[in-house]
């Protein structure tokens, strides 16, 4: 077997193992959260018998390991279970919905926003990083560095409100609320999510751009770069043809890290723009002790991190000629 395939399979197996460990941690940490769903929904004044009956109905009275095994078993067959909320107190009609129905549209919204931010910010960050390395020390380089550093230094809600103030209140280019629903048309959607997307771009560009610049500059002192210079290769060709192919590993790792942030770390931006994403859903579920939803969201976030890191690892491996072309 080619060593690259072997390494990828090995990383994949490690990813699955990580996911398993994460599921254990998620399950047990929710177990240790104070209070439970029964008390939260029935109120503190509820009779202990009522609470007990309600818990029994939800299966909360079973031992911990059994509930864990049930949950993991169901998740593996694609069943994320039913949400707790929507259940009436004992006797009422069961209006609870499957977790998957709650999460799916929210996740689609989150991925839409994340893709919009990523499609523009990744190429832009690479471009800025490469050009900053090319014109290292120039006014342009300093300007790009200072600007990106500024945007990353402000908290994201602050950037969001400033953008709202400028583009929504004064210029009236974009709406300040991004309240989309499944029927919203694509271009309307783009227009509505412009401000949250721009906020996210401003937050992540700096990190990726600075890593691109640093990774390239780090290689510029290599003897093979001097050799290219002495072969009469132009500065821009040196960077693109000689430095960049060797710089991918650190750059891709930072990109993966930031893309993961776009999926799992955007709850503040969602709140500011009242955007119906998965982050808000999870926060709501935590406050109402809706355990199945919290667990499902946490697993999705973990999966995102693992997949993106796996992707970064694969890119690092295939851009390393020593691994791709063994002796």
């Amino acid at each position: 077997m080619h060593p690259v395939i072997a390494t990828v399979l090995q990383r994949l197996a490690l990813g699955i193992l990580t996911l398993f460990v994460v599921s254990l941690i998620i399950f047990s940490s929710i177990e240790f959260l104070p209070g439970d769903f029964g008390e939260a929904i029935l109120g503190q004044a509820a009779l202990p018998e009522t609470v007990a009956a309600f818990r029994k109905e939800l299966g909360l009275d079973l031992p911990m390991y059994q509930r864990y095994l049930d949950w993991v078993g169901n998740v593996m067959t694609g069943d994320l279970g039913n949400s707790f909320s929507g259940r009436g107190s004992s006797g009422g009609a069961d209006r609870s919905r499957p977790v998957i129905d709650l999460i799916a549209p929210r996740l689609a919204n989150t991925l839409f926003l994340a893709s919009m931010a990523a499609i523009i910010s990744v190429p832009l960050a690479l471009f800025l990083g490469i050009t900053a390395a090319l014109y290292r020390g120039s006014i342009y380089d300093r300007l790009v560095n200072a600007l990106t550093l500024t945007t990353i230094s402000f908290p994201e809600f602050f950037v969001a409100y400033i953008l709202i103030l400028i583009f929504s209140s004064f210029l009236k280019f974009f709406p300040s609320l991004a309240n989309i629903d499944p029927t919203t048309d694509f271009w309307v959607r783009v227009h509505l999510t412009a401000l949250p997307a721009i906020t996210l771009m401003l937050v992540i560009i700096a990190h990726m751009m600075r890593m691109t610049r640093a990774a390239i500059i780090n290689l510029m002192a290599s003897p093979y770069i001097e050799m290219a210079d002495l072969k009469g290769v132009s500065k821009s060709q040196i960077i693109i043809h000689h430095a960049l192919p060797n710089a991918w590993a650190p750059i891709v790792n930072v990109i993966a890290f930031n893309l993961a942030y776009l999926v799992v770390g955007v709850v503040v931006v969602e709140v500011v723009f009242v955007y119906p994403g998965v982050g808000q859903l999870m926060v709501d579920a935590v406050t109402t002790r809706d355990v199945p939803v919290v667990q499902a969201c946490a697993m999705i976030f973990a999966l995102t991190y693992i997949l993106l890191n796996l992707f970064a690892d694969i890119i690092s491996i295939i851009t390393n000629p020593r691994l791709l072309h063994p002796r």
Binding site: P223, M227, A228, G232
Partner: peptide, 24 residues
Amino acid sequence: KRKLRGSRIAYVAQSAAASFNPSH
């Protein structure tokens, strides 16, 4: 000068291992 380098004047470096780009 760039036009001369690699065409009319060439350079052979001390450390061959470090002077070749590992990616090409």
